[in-house]
Each structure stands twice: as C-alpha cells, then as structure tokens.
Design a protein around this nucleic acid. Structure first.
Lengths: 345, 345
DNA sequence: TTGAAAGCGCTAACAC
DNA sequence: GTGTTAGCGCTTTCAA
C-alpha cells in the first residue's frame, strides 16, 4: 500500500493531529486524555494499522510484561503441566511467557538466567536443574539471589533463601512406602532420577517408613537413572532386576522413567501386579489405562500459586527479605498395580 | 557491593579507559579493536559483572536474535517434538526460541502473530490453527503475508503462498488404508480432529484407497473430535462405536485422541487386535509398549528443515517471491494392533 | 489535558 | 583502530 517504512507513534500522532505524547498515552493506556483525542488517535491507529514496538517500550519503561518459566524438559507431562498452569495464570495479568529448557543441565540453567536478565524479563518461575551433590560456585549462588524476581518450583536449592512452592515429598513418599509395606512388601526397589532435592526427600520418606516399622532397608535397592530416556531407564531397570531378583515391588520416583520400566517388564513377561507391584510418582495419561497406582502431585496448583507469588514479587519495588516455602500435598491414587507380594500368596 | 544503578556499556568503557563505541565493539563482537583494548574491556566486564541490555540492542539493531514457534498445544508429543527440533537448530545459530500456544484457536494465533511482530522477533515457525472451513478475514490474510518471515509447518493455509514443510499426508494415508483393506477390512472408522489441512489430506488418501479398490466407502464412518481431551475423544469413540457396531478397524488421525479411544475400548472389554484393529497417526511413547501400529511422521526432520529455511528467509533482506512446499514421507510402523477382521477368521 | 524535550542503553555512520 | 555523534521508538518528566 503506502511506503515501506515502519509506522511509529509519530505517524499516528501526526495523522490524529495530536502530539506524540498524547498518542502514546492513548495507545499505552496511561495518563489522561480527552475523549476526543482518544477517538482520533484510535482512528489513526486503525487507519495505519499501527503496532507498538514493544522493544522500544521495554527500553523506556524498564518492564517487558514478560515472565519466563524454566523447566528441565518440554517432553515431560509434569513440566508441561506446570508450564500450562503458569501460562494460564500469566495470561490473566496480560503477561507473556517465555519457556526455557535446561535439559537438566545446571550450566544451561545459569545461561538462561543470565540471558533472561539481559532480556529484562520481569520475573522467573524456576524448576531448577540443581543437584544436591553439585558444588555451587559462589558466583552462581549470587545469581540466584540477584534482583531478578524468582520463584522456585518443585525443586529447591539449599542455602538459597527464596520462595519455593513444591510438593510435600517426604510425607507422600512415607505414605506410599507404608502402603506397600502394609501389603507385606519388604524388598521395594526404587528407581530414581538424579539427585534433585525432591528425590532426596522422597528417599528420606521411604527410609523413614522402614525405620518406623523397625525394619532394615537395603541401600542397594536404590537405582538411579541419570539420563531421562526410555532406553536408559529400560536398561537400568533391566540390570537392577537382574541383580535383585527378589524385589517384589518397584517404586518409581518419576513418570518419565515409567515407560522404559514397563518395556523391560514386558520383555521379561512379568505381569503387574501378579509378578511385581508398581507405584509411580506423577500421573500420566496412560496410567489410568494401565491401572497404575500413582502419586499425583498438585502441579497445576503449584504452578498457579508460584505465578501469583511471582506477581507479588514483581509488584513490590524493594526486594522483600522474607520468603515463603509452601508445600502442597500430593494424592495417592490407588489403582490396580499393587498387590500382596508373590511369596505371601 | 557498589551502588545499585544498573551497569551499562558506559561504565565498562570508563573503567577500561576506552570509548563507549570500542567497548560496544568488544562486547557485541563486531567491528575491529586492538588486542589490548579487547583485554581491558573484558576485564572491566568481568569486574563489573556487566550484562548487556538486549532490549536496547534490539531497538538499535532491529534484530532480536529470537525466533518464535507457534503450536496448538504444549501437551502433545507431536508438537513438543517439533519445538524440540526447532530449539536444537536455533541454538546452533545462537538464536533464542519463544514458544507460543494457540490451543487451536485461530484468534489466539493471530494475537500471537501480532504480538510477536511487536516484539520484533526475527521469524516464526507456525503450526497454524487454521481450519479449512474457516472464513479467513481479509485483514488476517494480509497478516500471514506480511514482512515477518514465516515458515508453515505441518499444516498449510490455502491461498497463502509461503513456505510449508509438512508430511506427505495423502500418500501415507492411502497406504495405511490399503494396509487395512488388504487384510479384509471394509468398515474402517476414522476418528479425526478438526478440519485442518492435514486431516483433509489424510481423509482424501483414505477415500482414494477405497476408490482405487473399487469399493464404496461410507461417509458416516468419519467421526470428528473438536476438543482434544481424553474425556472428549473417549465420548466420541463411545458414541461412534454404538452407532456403528460393525466397524472392524479404527483409524485414528491424531495421537492425542488415542488414549481416550483406548479407554473406551477397555471399558467395552474389546481386545486389540482380536476384536478390533487399530492404526494411529504419530508415534507415542506408549505405542511401542502397547504394540500399536503407527504412522510416524518425520517431525524432527520437519522441524529442522523448517528452521533452516527460516534462517534463509531471515538472511535475505528482500522478501523472496518464490516459496517452497516440501513434503516428507512418514513411515508406517507395523506392530501388532492390526489383524484380519473378526468375520474373516 | 496537552506538548516539548529528555533519555532508556545500545549500535551504526562517519570522521579521524 | 578508535572516538564522536546521532538516533532506534517509546515513556516520562515538566511546564504550560
């Protein structure tokens, strides 16, 4: 149509016969303008099909109306449910959401954090890739406590005093283990992921259940899968069961390990629950179909509360000294994958 | 530490004892500077922990080193695999990826496109929510052919002459249908999603297979699920099978419909493939476990090629008049969910 | 309620 | 190789 130059607020102002400032006030919806000016400006906007340049606005106003959510992977129903909840909540406030993935690599996480800071996002929801056994570089640590508002979700970092919203992992794990023990299971094999804070808490709950029942547990009954792929979890499961054929129940600490485990069980022609009981963290679309007993985390609620908290932080000009650590209760959904151990029957 | 003011390139320049321009050249890695200056600037950067302001850089350079990928949902293995492939490719070029979801709502798609334009992303990978039966507002249409580089993926919009990378849906659907027909199936029920271009092509392939065999097909054997949820696909499947108890094979055009269908089949205690055959588009983690025969699309390759093409478009200053429409071949993965129809045995 | 002017932090153009 | 200057498009004083 007209010429190719990008249309700016000045063009709008000129056409509307007002100053740039007034046009800006109308489009940006701030300050006060007369009804008449407002109309004329909107008319001009429509006529020119003016699109405000958010980059320029961001530079000037020092706020981008964007938050970020950092998760390990986008190919995981749990993370994905979190992202979904965050987006939903953010949309209500008119914020955009930037999704970042770490592939559970803490270096990538820090890179993202740095980049997001440079991009001037207003805040971050962080499901950290930090592992309990990692040594946290001092410089990194400083980063987590910078001025950028952050709400931790699911996983926390010891020594970093910032808001955390997560599941009550210890209790839920205690109850789940007790549920299996009450059925008579003693050889309960754990298949875990890397050493995230959540995993630690769940293992503590497991151990506490044993301790409380006055039964010794076998430290070798804990297997770890470092790479979250079907192939890897299948392999780990395979070796684990080879080494410990006396295991009567499998307690899987992460849904993304489940299909690999099931594939190995299928190969061995082991039936669930006749040959082995199965209990899994996080509900999956297929868990209902396969009748798998599950610990379901309130991830939608976690995402919602985390986002709300983040907006509180963004709202406050000064950094607040006090922080919350909220724990929400998961729910044990009993289906049909757990029964008495074989030898008991 | 020092005072709270944000650190800019001017601070770095001052500390390094060079001009702002030189400092900028070092940090932004452009132009030429002496080794000596370079060192001094980097020293200053480290000392001050300077983080460049990407907003300012974007405003000035008119490029954000960011592309966006728009998909229907983030809770779908197919979309998610696409996003993954795009991210991987973008990372190589040092680009960031903004993930946007439309929930298959064309209005949301346009809103995103507008916003991304305002945000000055450098380009967009678009899995459009456009449905064949929608009437495309002229103004919308103009948007798709704007200056913003876009590469369509998976789904195309008729009349929009831009690059498209997608599966060869017609052929693959033809082959899959023929595979079932060769087994003796005549009552093949389709469970489809909304009327996306891909769905249309797949149905055409299905019809062609019938036509080619000189067999009439029954138009009522096509069911549509408008809302992609387990609950909904389960319900549609239920009513569909009630109405057509003579169906011997189910041909599901989208993986996210599958678990709902399986749930209904389970409720009816119908065994696969003894009671009914099943063939599904898109591979899922659980398809291998459940031995479901699948049409696997080369989504990773699609994402890769689309991203590369997008970078080509971004590279070229003028809008190219010619566009590509590339079609990649899906693969039929034969497992055990299809067999002879019951009456044949 | 409005307009003029300043300036957010950076890079590009141009001179030296 | 380096510095000076202008200005990306907007919002925000400040004064009228």
């Amino acid at each position: 149509m007209s010429d190719d130059r990008t249309i700016t607020i000045d063009d709008v102002a000129k056409l509307a016969g007002v100053s740039r400032a007034t046009a800006g006030r109308v489009v940006g919806n701030y300050g006060s303008v007369s009804e008449k000016s407002r109309e004329r400006v909107w008319d001009a906007v429509r006529q020119l099909d003016y699109q405000p340049n958010l980059i320029a606005r961001g530079l000037r106003s020092q706020t981008t109306k964007t938050i970020a959510v950092i998760v390990g992977s986008i190919r995981n129903t749990y993370s994905t449910a979190l992202v979904y909840a965050v987006e939903k909540e953010a949309q209500k406030k008119g914020y955009n959401v930037l999704i970042c993935t770490t592939h559970e690599d803490i270096e990538k996480e820090l890179k993202h954090l740095k980049d997001l800071n440079s991009r001037k996002v207003d805040g971050v929801i962080l499901m950290s890739a930090y592992r309990a056994d990692a040594n946290m570089d001092k410089k990194y640590k400083e980063f987590y406590i910078s001025k950028l508002p952050i709400v931790f979700v699911d996983r926390s970092i010891p020594g970093i005093n910032r808001d955390v919203i997560q599941s009550e992992n210890f209790d839920a794990s205690y109850k789940a283990t007790k549920y299996l023990m009450d059925m008579g299971h003693r050889k309960i094999g754990i298949i875990a992921t890397s050493n995230f804070s959540t995993v630690q808490e769940r293992i503590k709950g497991y151990k506490a259940a044993f301790a409380n029942a006055g039964i010794e547990y076998d430290e070798s009954l804990i297997a770890s899968v470092d790479e979250l792929s079907d192939k890897m979890s299948r392999k780990v499961c395979h070796e684990f069961l080879e080494e410990h054929p006396d295991i009567t129940a499998l307690y899987i600490l992460n849904n993304s390990l489940c299909s690999g485990v099931l594939l190995d069980l299928k190969e061995r022609q082991m039936k669930i629950p006749q040959d082995i009981s199965l209990l899994v963290w996080d509900d999956e679309e297929y868990n209902e179909l396969l009748d798998i007993t599950t610990i379901e985390q309130p991830i939608t609620e976690i995402g919602k509360q985390a986002t709300r908290r983040l907006f509180e932080l963004i709202g406050e000009p000064e950094e607040t000294t006090d922080f919350e650590c909220k724990k929400l209760d998961p729910e044990l959904i009993i289906r049909k994958s757990c029964t008495l151990p074989k030898y008991r029957k």
